[in-house]
Design a protein around this nucleic acid. Sequence first.
DNA 1: GCCAACGTTGGC
DNA 2: GCCAACGTTGGC
Length: 137
Amino acid sequence: MNYWLVKSEPAAFSWTEQVRNDVEPWTGVRNYQARNNLAAMKCGDLAFFYHSVTDKQIVGVVEIVREAYPDPTAQDGKWVCVDVKARGAMAEPITLAAIKADPDLQDLALLRQSRLSVVPVNDAQWRYLCDLGKWQG
DNA sequence: GCCAACGTTGGC
DNA sequence: GCCAACGTTGGC
């Protein structure tokens, strides 16, 4: 099982909407590296849900419930999306500031490739962040 | 509003 | 194939 982190601007699509809709197609990715990450996702993989721009914190966890298929919002068929299901909110959201200040998190892809909207998270990082956010899996 | 860090486009 | 110009993302 693999772990990921996906980003969304709350103004475009927020965690509140994810919870309300429960299962949601993760569309709109138009970057090849991010697309490759989407394509590598398997059913049962988990991903942190990060609010970019205005909120700048990890607010919840989603589960991949449908693997990569053509993104219906792309006309040319070159892009893919996955379906994700809400698995619960962080009891304590993890702010970007806290991540940046933590020596153990300096290798997070979120920091190293700040513009990439779908990034992998390794096992150790996943456990560490779940602990920080007091997420009850 | 600005800027850094990319990614993409197009001229050569 | 190189590189300058341009566009976008996302933090500050």
